[in-house]
Design a binder for these strands. Structure first.
Lengths: 341, 341
DNA sequence: CTGTTAGCGCGTTCAG
DNA sequence: CTGAACGCGCTAACAG
């Protein structure tokens, strides 16, 4: 039988309350007593039963997800996954609240972040816009003792506890190699469609993409990046213009959202041209395009996995526990038409 | 506050013990009483607190993993993951036992399966060898009330509760498309190295591979399948012979384990030839080969995810709960040299 | 057939 | 600074 608080009380020759105080780092225990108890804990190899502790405490984990507004399928999916998680709240002992902020708007994000100060939270997850003031606001939150995890897009250099998202440099590199190899030695131009260079994930994807392109596929030339703000309308316009303006374009890499617009442009302006296309995020639109051959590969991050992982990590961080690293690594999914879920 | 057993007792006008009896489908309750209680449960929207129940019961989940012996990195990895899981046993309330059986040996597997009958188990996970007698033995186990999940290789047509592994037909199809597109229109022969046609996962991969090859890459011709029994030595011999015997081979698909042997053959006999190679399972060997360009893509199943998923499913099945479907889907990982974990 | 009661492992008053 | 005692939501004897 696994040792309990009774065992350690007996071993240390103190009462339960004292054991509890040292377990929960509460004041009111003399140094000598504390050390005696800590020794006992180590000796008998005690591990706290979190379930029983939570039961006794009636613990719930109040969690906040800060998500950007935005009319694209990926964000819709992300919202959906968070709502799914809310569904399991009673079971998980979580209490999830969604806060919406305008996309690509650092001041708005900072305001929401600061508004969370002082609220008794077990964690906040945010899709970070990469700006110094956001970094500072996150650091303030962390300093106030709240577990913070970035979701989808990271905030390197901040003190956030964890990042629940894919390695975007690797994603860009992978896209470059797929595109390069699928083009099989052909020579021509590549157009890159991004959302905004204000978010780190897009910048990183571009960085990875460019470096592999330059190093390994010199016969392919990168055109200036198109910024579609993850908006289908803008994306459509930009890609249509690009395609009409040049017929040396043989490949497209769409590293942001708003692919609905890209697909429309491909169907209309791209009609009859042989384009190799790699895009990010599996949605109902990109799925169909993959199946009908309009695009060749989809790189994806599993929003459900990201949300569940973020929750696990926030809970664990809130209790000072550690997590299974391998389980929390968000993988880059590569979908061809053959391995769609 | 979420309703408890007390609330339902009050609502139904009975005692706790009676409530407990109907909750746990135990005998000793009159039909009318039972119905009254069930109505109350529905009315107040009661959901049982599994953690509290497990605490009260002192419940542990005795689990058995039946794994094949075999000197290849994938199986070593799988063992490692199960051992990792054993590490978390106290935390998970699991009690995991590993049973080893010779690989590709239906009678041995059946014997072990039957030996498990009557043991009070919360679940058994097995890497299934696909044979009618195995199917029957699994069905017997299921009939005796033990949750059974297949791991890595499925046993279609049996009554196993769940399969924790990748879709191997999709894996084969994906391999074909990667190989076909990476070869960019070149014409030549493709060699397939398998472990054994006795395991369903290998048969399915071959099936998926062949069908996409035939339908979409007619310029590529499949050579007769090599069966290496997932053994590095045998694989080395077979591949070396194949390569020496023909110089029209331009691609290789290794759909089983034992890639150490394949890699040796490629280094020695394949020296200087331009081969496009797709293999299964990321191991220390295939990782290096991917990085140094000996192979072009690795298809992988995350053994850690498979094991954790199998455990979650067995526990849930044992308690009659349901699982998050999306979470238990085992994805096919595609690794290029750029997105290695 | 049904009800009472004492725990499971832990946290938390409230006296001492 | 320390200890005794009760309760979290649920199960399991043991009575009736």
């Amino acid at each position: 039988m696994r040792p309990t608080v009774y065992d350690i009380a007996a071993a240390a020759g103190v009462s339960l309350a004292t054991v509890d105080r040292v377990l929960n780092r509460r004041p009111g225990v003399r140094l000598v007593t504390r050390e005696k108890v800590e020794a006992a804990i180590r000796d008998i190899g005690y591990v706290r039963d979190v379930a029983a502790a939570n039961l006794a405490k009636g613990r719930v984990y109040p969690l906040v997800f800060i998500l950007p507004t935005g009319d694209n399928s990926f964000m819709h999916g992300l919202y959906g996954e968070v709502r799914q998680a809310m569904t399991r709240s009673t079971f998980d002992r979580t209490e999830i609240r969604i806060v919406e902020v305008p996309a690509f708007d650092p001041p708005a994000l900072v305001a929401e972040l600061d508004a969370l100060q002082g609220q008794e939270l077990a964690g906040v997850a945010l899709v970070a816009t990469d700006a110094p003031e956001v970094r500072a606001a996150v650091d303030r939150l962390v300093a106030s003792g709240i577990p913070v995890v970035t979701l989808v897009s990271d905030l390197t250099g901040s003190t956030r506890h964890h990042y629940a998202g894919v390695d975007n440099i690797a994603a860009g590199r992978t896209a470059a190699r797929l595109l390069g190899r699928f083009l099989g030695g052909r020579k021509g131009d590549i157009t890159v469609l991004a959302g905004s260079m204000l978010v780190r994930d897009h910048r990183e994807r571009l960085e990875g993409f460019s470096s592999v392109m330059a190093a390994e596929f010199p016969q392919l030339r990168l055109l200036p990046v198109l910024e579609g703000r993850d908006d289908p309308e803008i994306a459509n316009t930009l890609v249509s213009e690009a395609l009409s303006g040049s017929n040396s374009i043989i490949g497209i890499y769409s590293l942001g959202a708003g692919n609905r617009g890209l697909l429309r442009a491909l169907k209309e302006t791209g009609q009859g041209r042989e384009l190799t296309v790699v895009v990010h995020e599996l949605t109902e639109h990109t799925r169909i395009a993959l199946l009908d051959g309009t695009i060749d590969a989809v790189l994806n991050q599993d929003a459900g996995h990201e949300v569940r992982s973020a929750i696990r990590v926030m809970k664990a961080t809130a209790d000072g526990q550690d997590v299974i690293a391998g389980q929390e690594r968000i993988r880059l999914d590569i979908f061809l038409k053959d391995n769609l879920p």
